[in-house]
Structure formats: C-alpha cells, structure tokens
Simulated scan of single mutants.
Amino acid sequence: MKGRRQATIIEIIKKYDVETQEELREKLLERGIDVKQSTLSRDIKELRIIKVLSKNKRYIYAISVPNSDIKKEKLLGIFSNSILSIEKVDKFVVIKTLPGSASAAGEMIDQLDFFGIAGTIAGDNTMFILLREEEEANKLVEEIHKIIND
C-alpha cells in the first residue's frame, strides 16, 4: 500500500501543480487513496519532495533532483514493491505494476540508466521498455529480478 501510495504521489506531482498537502490529499482521494495528513507528511519527507517557485510565481511540490543515495533507495523500494510481473518479448521488456505505479517504475528504470535502453513508455499499470538488442533485454530482465528479489 505504501509503495503504491508513494508512486501515486510522485505521479500526481509530476502531472499537476500541487501547492498544498490538502490539495495533494484530495488528488489521492480522487484515485481511491485515503491518507492521513501525518502519513502524507512522512511520505513527502521520505520521497524528498520539495517546494519550488512555479512560472505562475506560486510554490508547488516538485521531485528533487535525484542525486542522493537515500532517494534512490526509496525509489528502489517503490519500484520493487509495485512490480507484479516482467516479460521479455524480443527487444521489449513489459512490466506490469500495481495500478498507478507504472510511471514511478519507469522513473526508476530511467534513474538506473541501464545500458541499451532506447526508450520507455509508461501507462497506469504497464510499462514498455525498448532495448537496442535482444541480449540487452535478457540482461535487463535479470537485473530487474535481482533488484526486486533483494
């Protein structure tokens, strides 16, 4: 539940200009996630979400630049807790996630900067990863299994 909630928080912040915790809480409720203010506050802290000045001169939540080991560790936690299945089809890797978690999983794949990835596309609960070579797709599946099984 926590992984799905935190993945949804990341998705919302990337998609909308969210100014307050209450506004974020309402957007979570719209997606069927009821969360207490104290829990939301902890999630914001754990995910290292910051406030930045928007183009409209208002402060909004933003995902901080991923450069800390702590953030990477949290993203790895969300990633490993949200994956339901992984399948390789030729040069593609298809990952099924919990509802609302595919974009967060895609962000983690992008952050890990695996060799040979031509691109990723993430929907609500499915992510497609195109690799340049079929052998690279096999290696990616192996690496993802290592991550989620640790």
Rank of each mutant, 00 (worst) to 15 (best):
K2Y: 13
K2F: 12
G3C: 12
R4H: 12
R4V: 14
R4A: 15
Q6T: 07
A7N: 10
T8L: 11
I9H: 06
I9G: 07
I10K: 01
I10N: 03
I10D: 04
E11A: 13
I12R: 07
I12N: 08
I12M: 09
I12A: 10
I13A: 11
K14E: 15
K14V: 09
K14G: 15
K14N: 15
K14S: 14
K15C: 04
K15G: 04
K15Y: 07
D17S: 11
V18F: 06
E19P: 00
E22D: 13
L24G: 07
L24M: 08
R25W: 03
L28V: 11
L28C: 10
L29S: 13
L29W: 06
E30V: 03
G32W: 04
G32C: 09
I33D: 02
I33K: 04
D34A: 13
Q37S: 14
Q37G: 10
S38G: 05
T39I: 08
T39V: 10
L40M: 08
L40W: 03
R42S: 10
D43R: 03
K45P: 00
E46N: 15
L47R: 01
L47T: 04
I49Q: 00
I49R: 00
I49L: 02
K51Q: 07
V52S: 06
V52L: 00
L53K: 10
S54E: 06
K55H: 09
N56P: 00
K57R: 15
K57E: 15
A62D: 05
I63G: 01
I63P: 00
N67P: 00
D69I: 03
D69K: 06
D69Y: 07
I70G: 07
I70E: 15
K71T: 12
K71M: 13
K71I: 12
E73C: 06
E73W: 03
E73F: 06
L76H: 05
L76I: 09
L76Q: 12
L76P: 01
L76S: 14
I78F: 05
I78G: 02
F79G: 03
S80Y: 01
N81E: 15
L84H: 07
L84M: 12
I86T: 13
I86G: 02
K88D: 08
K88M: 08
K88W: 07
V89R: 14
D90R: 10
F92T: 08
F92K: 15
V93Y: 02
I95G: 11
P99K: 09
P99N: 14
A102R: 00
A102C: 05
G106N: 12
G106S: 15
E107W: 01
M108H: 01
Q111F: 11
L112K: 01
D113E: 11
F114W: 01
I117F: 04
A118Y: 06
A118F: 05
I121S: 14
I121D: 10
T126I: 15
T126F: 09
F128L: 13
F128Y: 14
I129M: 07
I129R: 05
I129H: 09
L130D: 04
L131E: 01
E133K: 14
E134Y: 05
E136Q: 06
E136H: 05
N138M: 10
K139Q: 11
E143R: 11
E143Y: 08
E143P: 02
E143M: 10
I147E: 02
I147M: 07
N149S: 14
D150R: 14
D150V: 08
